[in-house]
């Protein structure tokens, strides 16, 4: 019976316990007055509530035997690849800037998925340039330029 419906609340309880241990370490306010319900009150209440809900979830699982939805894999290969892609893209942006990073990533994505249609590549590049133009020239938002500038 040790499936995700049990493991997930248990992980959250452990996480909550860590957070609960952090709360007493908040500094005391030095310069301003505080209400009778202080800075520690809300986080404490929220954490205790979270732990209670997690326990209730575990109890619910065992007592009521709520049928679990057909076990979809938590992470599939594709979603993991998606995550790697996201992180690589973000890192690339901070290194070479928005424009180049986007061109590389979009092209890389299409190549990786073995897309053959040239139209898709054209759409991808047009999209990247259009966004760059829209942000940088129309909205005057300076997009990341990378470390070389």
């Amino acid at each position: 019976m040790l499936n995700r419906e049990v493991i997930f609340p248990v992980i959250l309880i452990a996480f909550s316990a860590v957070v609960l241990a952090l709360i007493p370490q908040f500094q005391m306010p030095l310069y301003s007055q505080d209400a009778s319900v202080g800075a520690k009150f809300f986080p404490t209440v929220i954490i205790l509530g979270q732990i209670a809900i997690c326990i209730a979830l575990i109890v619910q699982h065992f007592v009521k035997k709520v049928e679990t939805t057909e076990a979809k894999a938590i992470v599939s290969k594709m979603s993991l690849l998606g995550l790697v892609f996201l992180v690589l893209y973000a890192v690339l942006i901070s290194v070479v800037g928005y424009l180049i990073a986007s061109l590389i990533s979009f092209t890389g994505y299409l190549v990786f998925l073995k897309v053959k249609k040239p139209l898709y590549y054209i759409v991808a590049w047009v999209f990247v340039f259009a966004i760059y133009y829209l942000f940088a020239k129309v909205f005057f938002i300076s997009l990341p330029e990378g470390m070389f500038y």
Binding site: V19, M28, P29, G38
Partner: peptide
């Protein structure tokens, strides 16, 4: 709610998480 408590406390400016 927990995420929303991150940052300087709005009443006393004490840093939280």
């Amino acid at each position: 709610l927990l995420v929303s408590t991150v940052g300087l406390d709005p009443v006393t400016s004490v840093p939280r998480f």
